[in-house]
């Protein structure tokens, strides 16, 4: 068994409004003069899992995303191996 590390990036689906992101985008544009085209706020979840292989570890991470970590109604996710 070894330890595998992942970062899960969770974003709201792009057709949904992201009021927090919109606010920050506006602040950056208006108060900091940065020409931001798009800004969306999501979250990152860092996990370490113990598994026999990297494939098994990936499966475990996928399972936890689908079981709990991600709400498929409104969110999408990507898993990055670290």
């Amino acid at each position: 068994m070894s330890v595998y590390k992942f970062m899960i990036d969770v974003q709201y689906k792009s057709n949904l409004r992201d009021p927090r992101g919109e606010t920050i985008k506006r602040v950056l544009k208006e108060e900091h003069g940065v020409p931001v085209k798009e800004l969306r706020i999501g979250k990152s979840i860092y996990v370490e899992v113990e598994a026999a292989s990297s494939d098994e570890a990936k499966e475990l991470v996928k399972k936890m995303c689908e079981d709990l970590l991600v709400n498929p109604v409104v969110e999408t996710y990507e898993v990055r191996s670290l």
Partner: peptide, 17 residues
């Protein structure tokens, strides 16, 4: 109830945050 899938839709952060 939303998260259980018993009612349709989702509840997200208020517009003004």
């Amino acid at each position: 109830l939303m998260e259980m899938g018993l009612l349709p839709g989702a509840l997200l952060q208020n517009e003004k945050g």
